[in-house]
Nucleic acid binder design. Structure first.
Length: 572
RNA sequence: GCCGGGAUAGCUCAGUUGGCAGAGCAACGCAUUCGUAAUGCGUAGGUCGUGGGUUCGAUUCCCAUUCCCGGCUCCA
């Protein structure tokens, strides 16, 4: 079944659901019921609050309707006539939609006694809907506008075949198991504390190890590519943010404080800081491009309801860089950022999709510059044979951008790297460089982040790997499992040898049987377990067990070190 | 921020129609010294998220508040 048909099927299912709800709860007012990416929903205005039990009833009723195999009939009528019909039925939301339609004639779809305003198309009969499930209830503003009344939205999904539905439901289960908040607790990675403030992350030793490993990796990769490390304070006087314009268009997200009758801001972004560093001296055209990199921690106030584990927080660290260059250098810079992104993404085995966002209605700078920059972004993508889609008008007001969406092991999509051209800040801060003719010119600025926020990326990584980090990232890389207490000294000796080579090692010294120690190490998703008993002690070896491959047999120290080094090098 | 649901031991959860608070895992102790996913016995652990109210008595009912969960809106 192709996508259009699946959409039709799901949309038809949403009609059936609305019909079921209407039969079960007379007096319900209908909102809208579209097909969405993984299913469909329908919004209802109901005096009583729906419960999970109601969902079961609704699903039953739907099955009944489907069994009766009603025909979906297309009815065309004049708009006024349709408005009258919906007014009679008391469907005020439908009337609202209809009166905003410009067409003279509208279509309605009818199955049995149920009529709904709808563009269609639909499957021929309700009986065509075979594999479906009602999933959940949630509140949703009418037409998505915050000031509108809240409706009850019921989500469901439908597939052509039962196998597809089952697979989807299994996928949902798998996603639940991989939830980074659950794994974060189970693997002792991080916590968020009520008394310290929601949205602020505390990394435990293991989580901090992963974060630190990621950060070191990024630093090295940035240095390799000609970026220079900078570092800026977390607080700056409000004047800086007045110049940058943030106090204007970003103030809802900023933390303010007053000290000695001076207003200060906790930085929500790093760019103004990097700009001050650029401005410390006169820059020659020969010095460009200047590339400043920082693991910059920023603080942004986010509405309480949007916070979500590591994925949406109030304090986070960006792998942020700002490139100051001449317009004629822009293309090369963009291309090398694209290569950089590609390299990093394949390290983590993420597939990705690319979007090019163009000029929005409100914008800073000249149209000529916008067109030039957009053309350069486009050309760079073509140059590297990166397939991309254009998101018209989705650029930031200060310049066009390239957004990269990561696809994880379950096929879910995450916001990833971003590359943004900026004409606005160089002007606001009067950035200049001296051109070869001695004139003062304004450089172009590029904002880019590869991982985006370390917090969000780490959250995505946990789910991508289901908590089983590859060896180079694993907080504990090797667990030594002595068979009995008499092997503790030997385990210590091996551990020291591995530690000296830079590996993160742990010894399970508990008075437990080997089965229990293995189980614990497996649950902690530790890549390598080294079992040591009498045999190993005598022969100066270890028994190697890999968390995925199981028993790998006996190896001597040189062999296991070799294997570990290989895995780290391959980032396997 | 908005709508709805929640908060009980370190973790996962049960429970009280208002009357001394429960299990498994983890921790600790003792025994056991064991070969590839859980050895046995015992000990300790709680202002039942926080603040008010109703009541002879509140973990339970009511109100407020904080935080969490599912969405909406917004976003890295």
């Amino acid at each position: 079944m192709n996508e259009t048909n699946l959409e039709t099927l799901r949309h038809s299912a949403s009609h059936v659901m609305a019909q079921a709800v209407q039969e079960l709860f007379p007096g319900v007012k209908l909102g809208i019921g579209p097909a969405i990416e993984n299913g469909f929903y329908y919004d209802f205005d109901l005096p009583e609050q729906l419960t999970p039990e109601d969902l079961v009833k609704i699903e039953k009723k739907m099955k009944h309707i489907i069994k009766q195999n009603h025909k979906f009939e297309r009815v065309e009528m004049k708009k006024e006539e349709a408005i009258r019909l919906m007014e009679e039925k008391g469907e005020k939301y439908k009337v609202e939609i209809l009166s905003e339609l410009e067409a003279e004639k509208v279509t309605l779809y009818k199955n049995a006694d149920f009529v709904d305003l709808c563009r269609g198309p639909h499957v021929e009969t309700t009986g065509k809907i075979k594999a479906f499930k009602v999933l959940s209830i949630a509140g949703a503003y009418w037409r998505g506008i915050e000031t509108n009344p809240v409706m009850q939205r019921i989500y469901g999904t439908a597939f052509e075949k039962k196998e597809d539905l089952d697979k989807y439901l299994e996928n949902l289960e798998e996603a639940k198991k991989r939830d980074h908040r659950k794994l974060g607790k189970e693997l002792d990675l991080f916590s968020i504390h009520e008394e310290a403030g929601t949205g602020f992350v505390y990394y435990h030793p293991k989580g901090a190890t992963v974060k630190n490993t990621l950060e070191n990796f990024l630093k090295e990769e940035n240095l390799k590519r000609g970026y220079e490390l900078v570092s800026i304070p977390h607080i700056a006087k409000i004047d800086l943010w007045n110049t940058s314009g943030h106090t204007n268009y970003y103030k809802e997200n900023m933390y303010f404080m007053q000290i000695d009758e001076q207003d200060y801001v906790v930085k929500p972004m790093n760019c103004p800081g990097h700009i001050l560093i650029y401005k410390r001296k006169l820059t020659s055209y020969r010095d460009l491009p200047v590339r400043y990199f920082e693991l910059g921690t920023v603080y942004r106030y986010e509405k309480s309801g949007v916070l979500h584990g590591l994925l949406r927080v109030r304090g986070f660290t960006q792998d942020d860089a700002h490139i100051f260059c001449r317009l004629d250098q822009l293309e090369d810079e963009i291309i090398s950022v694209l290569d950089f992104i590609h390299y990093i993404m394949q390290v983590f085995k993420f597939d990705y999709e690319v979007k090019l966002s163009t000029r929005p209605e409100k914008y800073a700078g000249t149209i000529e510059n916008w067109d030039k920059a957009t053309a350069i972004l486009e050309k760079s993508l073509q140059d590297r044979n990166v397939p991309f889609e254009v998101d018209p008008g989705e650029g930031v007001f200060y310049g066009p951008k390239i957004d990269v969406k990561l696809k994880d092991a379950l096929g879910r999509v995450w916001q990833g790297p971003t590359v943004q051209v900026d004409f606005n800040l160089p002007q606001r801060f009067d950035l200049i460089y001296t051109a070869n003719d001695g004139s003062k010119q304004t450089p172009v600025m590029v904002h880019r982040a590869i991982l985006g926020s370390i917090e969000r990326f780490l959250g995505a990584l946990i789910e991508h790997y289901a908590g089983a980090f590859p060896l180079w990232l694993a907080p504990v890389q090797v667990s030594l499992l002595p068979i009995t207490d008499s092997h503790l000294d030997y385990a210590d000796k091996i551990a020291q040898q591995l530690q000296q080579r830079g590996f993160r090692v742990e010894i399970d010294k508990r008075n437990e049987k080997i089965g229990a120690k293995i189980r614990n190490a497996q649950l902690q998703k530790i890549p390598y377990m080294l079992i040591v008993g009498d045999k190993e002690l005598e022969s100066e070896t270890v028994s190697v067990r890999h968390r995925k491959e199981g028993d790998l047999g006996t190896k001597n120290i040189a062999e296991i070190l070799d294997q570990l080094c290989q895995d780290v090098d391959n980032r396997a």
